[in-house]
Amino acid sequence: MKTNKRLMLSGDSKAQVGIGTLIIFIAMVLIAAVAASVLIQTSGVLQQQAQSTGNQATREVSSNLIIKSIEGVRAKNSSTIMASDISLMKVKVGLNVGSSPVDLNQLVISITDGSNTNSLLYANNAKTHGSSMADFSDSADASTNLEKLLTSNQSSPGVNARYFFTVQKIRDDDISVSQGNPIMNTGDLVTIYISTVSDGDLAYTSIGDITTSGSQKDSYLDVGPRSTVGMVLTPEAGATTIADFVTPSSYGTKEIISLYP
């Protein structure tokens, strides 16, 4: 005879009730909400920082000035009577493919002849440097500002040739480069003028297309034959551009000398 077996399921009918339990439940929900809010905020801040860092890193590697060529110009009285040194450098500059725009207002150029070094700013940056730009004009053409660079002496900061450079655009399809606001975009090409007048060049009457009548000022640089020249272009953002070269052993009868590359 089989024994009848019954399966009994025990039920737990007890539960916590009351105001205390409700308060604990609400507190747990609030804590979870606060924790979620903190995590969301933190992740948002980290994302913004990562994006900002990525953008800065991209600018550092993509904003590149390229020196296409450097030519030297000798001061002269005539086609046969010329200075023994380079009196003016014409630095042809463009942008690398995919580069971000470069504001030449913020460009700093350091140039050395092996003995002396000049750190140069753009000559029309009146917004940053104020009255020290008094000799230069936003509305003047490039040749007028170049003449001021070569021949003028201000009470502050002093001889223009020792503190400034000027720019003339060669190719500028989007009209972004002006004397007052020289912004280079991809495809733009400009010539940067750097005075290298030495004390032996002061008696000559012209430098390139500029008639100086012997009023050019000493830049403290001396770029004669076999000179070791170093040039560093440092933009506001992006990689620096460096050009190091040795001038030819003789300039011969040439007025314009190819120096780089």
Rank of each mutant, 00 (worst) to 15 (best):
S37D: 02
T117I: 11
S139D: 13
G94Q: 07
Y204V: 01
K14H: 09
D188Q: 02
I256D: 01
V197K: 01
V91Q: 01
S258E: 13
G18Q: 12
V45M: 10
I111G: 03
D222F: 14
A123P: 08
G11Y: 08
D85H: 06
T228V: 15
T253C: 10
V177E: 02
D218Q: 05
N125P: 01
Q106T: 13
S84M: 11
G98F: 02
T205F: 12
N160Q: 07
D188Y: 00
T144F: 05
T58N: 15
K68C: 09
T212N: 05
G98C: 06
D113W: 05
K76N: 13
I40N: 00
I256M: 10
Q48K: 15
T80P: 00
F164R: 04
V45F: 09
T21C: 08
I170W: 02
N116I: 01
G54K: 01
G208P: 03
V229Y: 02
N77S: 07
G158S: 12
V232S: 07
P182F: 01
K76V: 08
K169A: 10
G230N: 13
M133L: 12
Q48F: 09
D12G: 11
N105Y: 02
K148G: 09
T211S: 15
T240N: 14
S87G: 04
G230Y: 06
K148P: 06
N124Y: 05
T58Q: 14
F164G: 00
L88F: 03
D174C: 10
Q49G: 00
K254I: 00
A203H: 13
S10T: 14
I192D: 01
S198L: 13
A33W: 08
S137F: 14
I40L: 14
P157K: 08
P248A: 13
N185K: 15
D113C: 08
A243E: 09
L120G: 11
I175T: 10
M89D: 06
E60Y: 10
T191N: 10
M28E: 07
L150V: 02
M231P: 01
T53R: 15
Q168K: 15
L189A: 10
T247S: 09
K90A: 05
T191W: 07
S78T: 03
Y193Q: 02
R6C: 11
L150D: 05
I257Y: 09
S63L: 06
G20V: 12
S119Y: 05
G114I: 04
I170Q: 03
V93L: 04
S139R: 03
K169V: 06
N77G: 02
G224H: 09
A57T: 12
N153E: 12
T112D: 05
V29M: 14
M1L: 13
V34L: 07
A36T: 12
D199S: 14
S84Y: 10
K127N: 13
I170H: 01
S227Y: 01
T247R: 08
E60C: 07
T234A: 14
G94V: 13
V29S: 12
N55D: 06
L120D: 07
V93D: 03
